[in-house]
């Protein structure tokens, strides 16, 4: 079943120069394996087409049921150089949660994620 990532994960993003980081955290331990298989660096790069100019790196934090993504060249230069309203990439976390992921319906709690 395809669901919005928002239903099974939460996220926070921030900046380091022109690179944004997005931490994606599974809402339950059972969801984490699906984050690992569904959210490949390649798919995330494709999702952010038109926003992220550079490569996407992915790191795993299984203890926290989380993945960390580095989105390079994503902030229009970063810092005070950037002309973007969201120059620090604060809302790229929720942009990430617009992704669709494939997950068996049997393991999703019906009220998860307020969607």
């Amino acid at each position: 079943m395809k669901v919005l990532l928002l239903r099974i994960a939460h996220a926070r993003s921030g900046d380091k120069g022109d690179t944004a980081n997005v931490g994606v955290i599974a809402r339950r331990e059972e969801y984490y394996p699906f984050l690992r298989t569904e959210l490949t660096a390649k798919r995330v790069k494709a999702h952010f087409a038109g926003i992220v100019e550079g490569p996407v790196e992915r790191f795993e934090l299984p203890n926290l049921w989380a993945l960390n993504f580095l989105l390079h060249d994503a902030l229009g230069g970063g810092g005070t150089l950037s002309l973007k309203n969201d120059a620090q990439g604060k809302t790229l976390s929720s942009a990430m949660l617009r992704m669709e992921v494939d997950i068996p319906p049997t393991i999703i709690l019906p009220d998860e994620g307020h969607v």
Binding site: G14, K16, G23, I25, L64
Partner: peptide, 24 residues
Amino acid sequence: KEQLLYEIGDPTTYITPDCIADFT
């Protein structure tokens, strides 16, 4: 968890002048 993931890079190698911390 949300704060631990805020503005980090490679979580195994969080570098400060004091040490390298492994967030994993």
